[in-house]
Design a protein around this nucleic acid. Structure first.
Lengths: 218, 218
DNA sequence: ACATATTTTTAGATTAATCTAAATTTTTGA
DNA sequence: TCAAAAATTTAGATTAATCTAAAAATATGT
């Protein structure tokens, strides 16, 4: 049985692997987990000992098959609990991360499955991220950033890249939500801001915003 | 913020106080928590330091106002999560204790309240134990044991004293459940077993059983 | 009452996870 | 290439929670 800390290291390594390709080093992990690099060294030696990661001194780490399985299972639990909190307990999508960080570590052989069924087998969490199935398979959404859409083309908002509270609250305040169809009306070369239109409004958004919204082209 | 361990000590002290009256000593706590008495001494010094318990060397402990508040809040969370697991995720009443032991430690200012509302403000957990309200008030059920009913009198099964899996499964197998009306048909002086009747059957049960079932006289 | 048994506390060690500071290895760029 | 910078690891300490063994205090029973 892994400790919460060990699970968090695996999850961090997994998520760095997703965004940073292959270079998972001590510093990145320490940054992600807000610990010191020396603490990371200690823990990765321990995880390597348990065959959950591959580790060569000074060369960084990567997940083994079983380490990856565990990491994905935690992601699965995290996202399902987020769906529970938003769909059943009526939390807003910017409020659920901290609670899910705790709930994802509840140990039970059957709980995740029961929860998933209770929630009607959702495919995505409240931020649009895909929920892995019980075998660890993840529907790869190959969507594009809103910032990459051409003028006059449209997309449906599918997810967010940044899921910080402040970004999510910004979207709420801007009346932009998952499922919205957005059309790009104009692009400003100077600062890469774009003029967009959805059902409710036409407005300009900065690149910082458009580069953090996943859309499915239509 | 208290650690899970500290919370568990407070909960243990609270529950010993409920059953054992006033004598809450090191040995009882160590027995409840399956630790050694010396570990208990360490922890109660720490909790006394934080003004959560009163402690005088060699004299045992009792909860302060704030310690009691925290203990009851944990009980509240434990029982609400049990209701969730049984009512929403369709677990049987003998399967939920371990999960609730973990879920009760989830930290959030709003989660318990949301959960309670989602569950329609249940007053009792799946074993018939009362759920404290958000101020820590507990509806005191002043029920009696089935073993104390007179011949020819009846009672509604309200709760169980022993909520071990084995006892709960025994009740399932015996077709006895919360809400059943049970009539005492006869008593056997020799071993204190009693003959009971409910909607489905007439059967004899041992004193070990009848002394662990709370009933409300009717 | 007082010797014995029981309970409780103290002293010192251990384990997991962390830290700081120093040493080592790798990377970088003139 | 090779010296300086950056990253990583090692060494040694710390904190929380636990343990064992021994010492101290309390309770018990003739």
């Amino acid at each position: 049985m892994l400790s919460q800390t060990e699970e968090n290291y695996l999850k961090a390594i997994y998520s760095i692997g997703i965004s940073n390709g292959k270079n998972i080093n001590t510093t990145l992990i320490s940054r992600k987990l807000k610990t010191k690099p020396s603490s990371v060294t200690d823990m990765i030696r321990k995880l390597a000992e348990k065959d959950l990661i591959y580790y060569e001194k000074y060369k960084g780490v990567s997940l083994t098959q079983s380490g990856k399985k565990i990491a994905i299972d935690i992601v699965r639990k995290h996202r399902l609990w987020e769906v529970f909190l938003v769909n059943k307990l009526n939390y807003n999508w910017d409020e659920v991360h901290e609670m899910a960080e705790q709930l994802e570590h509840i140990k039970s052989d059957t709980l995740v499955g029961r929860l998933e069924a209770f929630l009607d087998f959702p495919k995505h969490d409240p931020h649009g991220d895909p929920i892995p199935d019980e075998n660890g398979n993840i529907a790869q959404h190959k969507n594009v950033m809103l910032s990459s859409l051409e003028i006059n083309s449209s997309g449906v908002v599918i997810g967010v890249k940044d899921s910080s509270s402040s970004f999510l609250q910004f979207l709420d305040n801007s009346n932009i939500k998952l499922g919205d169809t957005i059309k790009v009306i104009a692009k400003e070369d100077y600062d890469n801001s774009i003029l967009i239109e959805n059902k409710l409004q036409t407005k300009s958004i900065s690149q910082q915003i458009s580069a953090n919204l996943f859309v499915k082209k239509i």
